Simulated assay, not measured.
Amino acid sequence: MNDAERCPRCGQLNQCAQASSPQPVQDCWCFHRPIPRQLIEELPAEQRGKSCLCPHCAKALGTAVKTD
């Protein structure tokens, strides 16, 4: 398993179809859930653009941002 299959925030499997496929994919949960830029910017620079957040972190973080 490579680091692209792990959430950079919690380390759990991110369930991203792109991460586990050597070929481009047509659909994945992460294509349908917007992630606010500020959440990406909160990750360490070396982890940005390397892997998706997991659905749990993306949902929890997205909810926290909306209610602030």
Rank of each mutant, 00 (worst) to 15 (best):
residue 2 N to L: 07
residue 2 N to G: 09
residue 2 N to S: 11
residue 2 N to W: 07
residue 2 N to K: 08
residue 3 D to K: 02
residue 3 D to P: 00
residue 4 A to V: 08
residue 4 A to R: 12
residue 5 E to M: 15
residue 5 E to P: 06
residue 5 E to D: 15
residue 5 E to S: 13
residue 7 C to H: 04
residue 7 C to T: 02
residue 8 P to T: 03
residue 8 P to D: 04
residue 8 P to N: 02
residue 8 P to V: 00
residue 8 P to M: 03
residue 8 P to L: 03
residue 9 R to E: 07
residue 9 R to I: 01
residue 9 R to T: 03
residue 9 R to D: 04
residue 10 C to D: 07
residue 10 C to K: 00
residue 11 G to H: 01
residue 12 Q to W: 02
residue 12 Q to N: 10
residue 13 L to W: 08
residue 13 L to T: 02
residue 13 L to A: 07
residue 14 N to K: 04
residue 14 N to V: 06
residue 15 Q to Y: 08
residue 15 Q to W: 06
residue 15 Q to G: 02
residue 16 C to K: 06
residue 16 C to T: 07
residue 17 A to C: 08
residue 17 A to Y: 06
residue 18 Q to L: 12
residue 18 Q to T: 10
residue 18 Q to V: 05
residue 19 A to N: 03
residue 20 S to G: 13
residue 20 S to R: 15
residue 21 S to H: 14
residue 21 S to P: 07
residue 21 S to E: 14
residue 22 P to M: 06
residue 22 P to E: 10
residue 23 Q to C: 07
residue 23 Q to D: 13
residue 24 P to E: 10
residue 24 P to T: 11
residue 24 P to N: 12
residue 26 Q to A: 15
residue 26 Q to K: 14
residue 27 D to L: 12
residue 27 D to S: 15
residue 27 D to N: 14
residue 28 C to Y: 08
residue 28 C to I: 11
residue 28 C to T: 10
residue 29 W to T: 10
residue 30 C to E: 08
residue 31 F to M: 06
residue 32 H to M: 03
residue 32 H to L: 05
residue 33 R to Y: 11
residue 34 P to R: 13
residue 34 P to L: 12
residue 34 P to H: 14
residue 34 P to D: 14
residue 34 P to M: 12
residue 35 I to A: 08
residue 36 P to M: 10
residue 37 R to P: 09
residue 39 L to I: 12
residue 39 L to P: 01
residue 39 L to G: 00
residue 40 I to D: 03
residue 41 E to I: 01
residue 41 E to H: 09
residue 42 E to I: 02
residue 42 E to P: 00
residue 42 E to A: 12
residue 43 L to S: 04
residue 43 L to D: 01
residue 43 L to P: 07
residue 44 P to R: 04
residue 45 A to L: 09
residue 45 A to W: 03
residue 45 A to F: 06
residue 45 A to D: 06
residue 45 A to S: 06
residue 46 E to K: 05
residue 46 E to T: 01
residue 46 E to D: 15
residue 47 Q to G: 02
residue 47 Q to E: 00
residue 49 G to I: 02
residue 49 G to S: 02
residue 49 G to W: 01
residue 49 G to L: 01
residue 50 K to M: 01
residue 50 K to T: 05
residue 50 K to A: 02
residue 52 C to V: 00
residue 52 C to K: 00
residue 54 C to G: 11
residue 55 P to G: 07
residue 55 P to H: 09
residue 55 P to N: 08
residue 56 H to Y: 14
residue 56 H to L: 15
residue 56 H to D: 14
residue 57 C to P: 04
residue 57 C to E: 04
residue 57 C to R: 07
residue 57 C to Y: 02
residue 58 A to Q: 09
residue 59 K to R: 15
residue 59 K to F: 15
residue 60 A to P: 06
residue 60 A to R: 09
residue 61 L to A: 11
residue 62 G to T: 11
residue 63 T to Q: 13
residue 64 A to S: 10
residue 64 A to V: 02
residue 67 T to V: 13
residue 67 T to L: 12
